[in-house]
Amino acid sequence: MEAKNVSLTIDGVKVEVPEGTTVLAAAEKAGIEIPNLCFLKSLAPYGACGVCVVEAEGCPKLLRACATTVREGMVVNSKGERALKARKLAFELLMGDHDGDCLGPCKIECPAHTDCQKYVGEIAEGPTARSTSARSPKGASPTPLRR
């Protein structure tokens, strides 16, 4: 049986995708990134993070883009007020519960946010290590603080 194509509009952009595609995948095709945290292409949709919620015309509830299959003529708004509020709330809740340690306090306090840890780490490794350079390409920061 031939797969039919479905056309829909996401954030004002028209896009055509095969039947059975999710709104998240359709948005990706349209060049629109809908934020998501618990989604992985190789796994079945899970619906835990609630970050990919979108509004759809005619639908009284918010839809999870990762788990919703496209319908012909669907009009989706990933940045509608209600969807944005729910998304922002998800991040406020997550960050409020996140005992993370993004950057060393030295980097935060430095007015220029210089990454001094990088060369300090290199110096600690000793003179036989790769050249100690004040040159610091962007990339991985040293290992996290262990407790």
Binding site: P35, V51, K88, L89, H98, L103, A140, P144, L145
Partner: peptide, 27 residues
């Protein structure tokens, strides 16, 4: 060696920055 090894790749912080999340509001 304070800080997080994954800061550059972290999805949580990338989206939180884009949405200008206030981390203390619902702490």
């Amino acid at each position: 060696k304070c800080g997080c090894h994954d800061y550059q790749d972290c999805k949580l912080i990338r989206y939180a920055k884009a949405l200008k999340t206030d981390v203390l509001r619902l702490r």
